[in-house]
Design a protein around this nucleic acid. Structure first.
Lengths: 233, 233
DNA sequence: AATTTTGAATTGGTTAACCAGATTGGTTTG
DNA sequence: CAAACCAATCTGGTTAACCAATTCAAAATT
């Protein structure tokens, strides 16, 4: 019967603890944007944790653009004020791993945009790459094989053709989770896979013909099954 | 005149090199989803780099969902097939730091959606938080102070009210870059800051009244200056 | 012969020691 | 007295050593 030591801190918990202490420190010391925060060693000592943990926490805040480490120099508060900094850290501390539905919802949003942009900005090279993924997809469908991957690769090719690096990054972030969940829940059955060949080609042709609105419509049609999943089932 | 040793590898370059070698290895060994890749030690020895570099590379692939490390057990290929894995690694290797325009473009897209969703899903608590950011913003404007931070905090509050965790995360990722660039280029002047008080309130009221379409329209109005920045200037 | 036990080897995670570049304050020099 | 210089120190980055959980196969047990 274990009654004591329930306080074993999970890894994320200790990181959040450190982040929260760093915030306190910035507030207490009234550190302005551009100011240097104490060294990793000093922080690890002050907080009673290993330097690595401090580094991980700093790295996370760096990822979200709140701190900036300079080699052999120090770690500095980013050029956003205390108000924003506190608000954002609050949000970061509350971050949970996204739900699948929120991923799908975001994916639809992103792709309806990327295909419009692709229609406006696609190059000849983009078209070639998209066509290659189209064929790979059709091939596998005819062989009756699983095609979730090839499906997503077409969509990534579209995203690339949008030439919006942020959206490409975001698509990359959500894609693997989409794939695994689709395969798990069999969101795409065989009939849909066959239909999707044509739907993909429709999207592709609209992009090739540089018709953004049409591309969006065709993509919407292609996503109809997803809409069902989101709002009906 | 320096002719030799131009081959000093930048940090990112060595990481990309390792990622690329890992991909080769997965392809060559024909590793299926779920299979274990060689240990960090083995890889660091094989590639002739330190184990830390290997860890960083693996961590990056883990971030994009392509690998999964299990403590005291090993690192495994994610449940996406080789085709998707190769395609995604290709994209990851080509990733550049996003341009500011691509950030703004993505921000507009995200926010036109989050405010619609917020109108549909906002709770009473959400409303309170949004109102607080509204007042903080108005206060600072009246005092003639810089308000870029407070502006973004309102938008983050809207994102939170959308209850879509993926979009919240994405908003957090792009927000700091937006803030620093806005302050740098003075995208928001004083006149706009005053106008924005009303515009924010319009968006807020639409969300409060649960009118998604109206919320979107009001947000669009609020973004008119941004559209100008994107497509005219 | 099948099952359980067990211990050595392997794993990712963690800590500690080390490194090279940047900083800084005192010293020297013009 | 000001500017140039230099060495001690401090910094984040890197490497190496260590740890505990896991594996897996050989050995002991039933």
């Amino acid at each position: 019967m274990k009654l004591d030591v329930p306080t074993k801190l999970d890894n994320d918990e200790i990181q959040n603890e450190i982040i929260s202490r760093i915030r306190e420190l910035i507030n207490f010391k009234n550190l302005e944007p551009g100011d240097k925060i104490p060294s990793e060693r000093a922080l690890s000592e002050r907080f009673g944790v290993s330097r690595n943990h401090v580094r991980e926490a700093i790295r996370k805040l760096e990822f979200y653009g709140l701190l900036k480490s300079k080699p052999q120099s120090g770690t500095f508060v980013a050029d956003i004020g205390q108000v924003a900094l506190n608000g954002m850290i609050e949000d970061i501390l509350k971050l949970k791993t996204p739900s699948f539905k929120s991923l799908v919802e975001t994916r639809i949003l992103l792709e309806l945009k990327t295909c419009r942009l692709a229609a406006l900005r696609r190059t000849e090279d983009d078209l070639k790459e998209m066509e290659a993924t189209l064929e790979a997809y059709a091939d596998k469908v005819r062989k009756g094989q699983d095609v979730v991957q090839e499906d997503l690769l077409f969509h990534l090719a579209v995203a690339r053709a949008s030439h919006n690096s942020t959206m490409i990054t975001f698509m990359l972030i959500i894609t693997p989770e989409i794939i695994t969940n689709f395969e798990k829940y069999h969101v795409c059955d065989k009939d849909q896979a066959f239909k999707a060949i044509e739907e993909h080609r429709d999207v592709f042709m609209a992009i090739k013909d540089q018709k953004p609105q049409l591309a969006k419509e065709k993509m919407k049609t292609h996503f109809s099954a997803l809409y069902q999943y989101l709002y009906n089932v």
